[in-house]
Every structure is written in C-alpha cells, then in structure tokens.
Computed example of a mutant assay.
Amino acid sequence: MSEAVLYQSVLQKLGQLSPQNLAELDAFLAVLVKKQTKGAVTNEQPLLDQYFGAWKDWDDEEFQDFLDHTKEVRKDLFFTREVDL
C-alpha cells in the first residue's frame, strides 16, 4: 500500500470516529510518537555499546579510578612535554 493510500485510509477512519473516542486516539498517538522517538535513540545504543562496552559493567568506584588515572596520564603528558619557541 502506498503512503498516499495509507494516509487517506487513516484519515477516512479518523472521520468515522465519534468525538468521545478522540481523547483515546490522542493518547494512543502520543504513545506511538514516543515509541518512535525512543526507537530512534535505541537504534544508536548498540553502536554505543560497541565502543563503551568495556566499562559498562564496572562499579562506580572502579570507573572513577579509571577516570582519575586517565586524567593523571593526560595531565602528565601535557605538563611534561617540552615546547620549542
């Protein structure tokens, strides 16, 4: 079914609804929109897991130690290099 035909079909069915059902329809459409938006973010998650999966199971203390070590190494690399002027 083409998008235009599907769109027309949806509009035709909307026209058949009683005003009492519009609130329920609005809530349902809100759920669909939220699901679609959430799905877009979820599609990126496996890619993030591929890069960040190494420490996703670490506890907070272990992760903080890793960050502290990384900061220290970067600081040492920056402050100990010689600059020729």
Rank of each mutant, 00 (worst) to 15 (best):
K71N: 14
L6I: 11
T37V: 10
V33K: 02
E24K: 02
D60M: 10
L32C: 07
A23F: 04
D26L: 03
N21V: 11
L67F: 04
A30L: 09
L11W: 01
Q36E: 11
D57S: 02
E62R: 12
Q16R: 05
V10N: 00
D57K: 02
L22Y: 02
Y51M: 06
F63D: 08
F28S: 08
P19I: 02
D57M: 03
E44S: 08
Q8G: 10
E62Y: 05
N43G: 12
N21I: 04
N21Y: 05
F79W: 09
D26H: 03
L67E: 04
G15H: 00
R81T: 15
T37D: 11
K35I: 15
Q36H: 05
W58D: 13
L77P: 01
K35W: 14
E82F: 09
K75R: 09
N43C: 11
T42W: 02
Q20S: 12
K56V: 14
K71H: 11
D26K: 01
L77V: 09
L85Y: 10
L85S: 10
A4F: 07
V5D: 12
F63S: 07
E61M: 10
K75N: 12
V83H: 03
D57P: 00
P46A: 01
A40K: 06
K35A: 13
D59V: 07
L29K: 00
V31F: 04
V73N: 00
A30F: 09
F78W: 10
N21K: 06
Q12P: 07
F79N: 09
T80L: 05
Q45P: 01
G39D: 06
E61T: 14
A40V: 15
H69R: 10
T70I: 08
P46C: 01
E62Q: 15
L17G: 05
Y7C: 13
E82N: 07
A40P: 01
L22W: 01
A30G: 13
Y7M: 13
V33T: 10
K38G: 10
A40E: 14
K71S: 14
V83R: 01
K38E: 15
K35V: 14
A27C: 04
T42A: 12
M1Q: 02
E82H: 06
T80D: 11
A54W: 02
K71V: 15
K38N: 14
L48M: 07
E61Y: 05
F52D: 05
Q50K: 07
D65S: 06
L11F: 01
